[in-house]
Amino acid sequence: MTRRVSAIYFLPLVLAAGFLCFFLDQKINASAAPAGFENIPGRILGSAGEAVGDTLFLKADAYFHGGETFPNRPPETKEELGREGFVEDERENEKTLPAQPAGDWISRVNHEVRRHGHYHLTKDKQKEMLPFFAAAVKLDPRNVPAILTAAFWLDKSFDRSDAAIEILKQGARDNPEAWEIDAALADIYFYRKKDYARGEFHYADALRKAKSGDLTRFRRIDLTYHLAESLNFEGKRALALEAYREAFSLYDVENQTPLKETIRGKIQSLVVGE
């Protein structure tokens, strides 16, 4: 059963609905996470954007493994590691699948249709992951692993340090408590840009933000050491010496590592220089 709706009642309803939507939109935007023009998909999807972003991040991982999603892919065999197209890597802690499928003919046909094996993208194909990193970071600005992984690949595989820095900076703005992002930024400034002032700033920030349970001892040593190096390269010898000593003090007495010896040497050279 239908009724004709008189325009005189319909139009005010439409206008009222429009004003309500506009008002709600203003309210939502005022309380929303940073949202610029480029975050339209995130605004459209709302909280579903996080789920989509996570899925796209997993998709990037699947792409790296030749399309096989975890846990469907088996661990790589020795033969596969030696073959062209496969990249030697640490054995990952994945659920082991049988080499041949058990049981019925349907499983066997599926096994033949689907590719099986552990595969990593070669360097020239690794760029195929980038769209998923870009989308994951955009849709889920609070996905710190996605931000770090995207920056890592951009910096290490594609020599796009500037792009990596931009992602990490935006990630730091969206995740002010994430020490890992500062640590990653610091590494890029230190190693790639040789910008020791910025490196110092971010190493110090990472150490300041990390709560007591966040860092392993060796990670703390590493960050403190790099802070000391940055200070040293800037010529701030006193501050560098303090930082080296702090890093050294984190070692147990019985630890004997190359880095500990290096730090000991740096301390001695700075002390001698005083």
């Binding site: 980038l130 769209p131 594609f158």
Partner: peptide
């Protein structure tokens, strides 16, 4: 026409 970090020839997506 989408570009990703000025890396060319990305096609699988």
């Amino acid at each position: 026409q989408l570009q990703f970090y000025n890396v060319k020839n990305i096609v699988r997506y």
